[in-house]
């Protein structure tokens, strides 16, 4: 076995540590598989490059990097950039969904408030002539009665 330099030993230790950390986080359900996959791909790639000296050397030689560890950095930066872009996508989607939820919450709260007001009115004045308490509603009914057919299709 070839002599392992301090640099390589460190690189192997760090990438292996990252790999194990991600694995452990998934095992404890702290990190969802969806986001773990990218991290696992990145950590595995870096680990393979750190262990397999020949691959890193030939790879860096092919692209004209004279100092192999620099190639390791270049690959690492590329992978991290991909992960960050993925996170930006996730944040955009989440904030969009968040907006839809907030709007829906506002609309539902307004409906609930109105419904509560109506039922309070109805309870306060349970007289036959109470329809006057609901001018909008009764007017709308008088103006545009909903055909029974339409109601059945809505259901």
């Amino acid at each position: 076995m070839t002599k392992i330099t301090l640099q390589r030993g460190l690189a192997i230790a760090v990438t292996l540590g990252l790999l194990l950390l991600v694995f452990e986080l998934v095992r404890r359900k702290r990190l969802s598989e969806r986001y773990a996959i990218l991290w696992l791909v990145a950590a595995t790639t870096l680990f393979v490059l750190a262990v397999w000296k020949g691959l890193l050397t030939s790879l860096s030689h092919d692209v004209g990097i004279s100092y192999p560890p620099s190639a390791l950095f270049a690959v690492a930066i590329g992978l991290i950039a991909m992960i960050l872009l993925h996170f930006s996508l996730a944040v955009s989607r989440l904030s969009d969904q968040n907006k839809v939820l907030a709007q829906r919450l506002g609309l539902l709260a307004q409906r609930l408030e109105k419904a509560e007001e109506r039922s309070a009115d109805a309870r306060a004045a349970p007289v036959p002539g109470k329809r006057s308490a609901l001018p909008d509603h009764s007017e709308a009914e008088a103006e545009a009665p909903v055909p029974a057919q339409e109601l059945s299709t809505r259901r």
Binding site: K99, A102, Q103, L105, Q110
Partner: peptide, 17 residues
């Protein structure tokens, strides 16, 4: 009639509501 957003959505989100 008041539509209350649970937090500040920004003018676009509010208008769309």
């Amino acid at each position: 009639t008041v539509l209350r957003m649970p937090f500040n959505l920004g003018i676009g989100g509010a208008m769309q509501g």
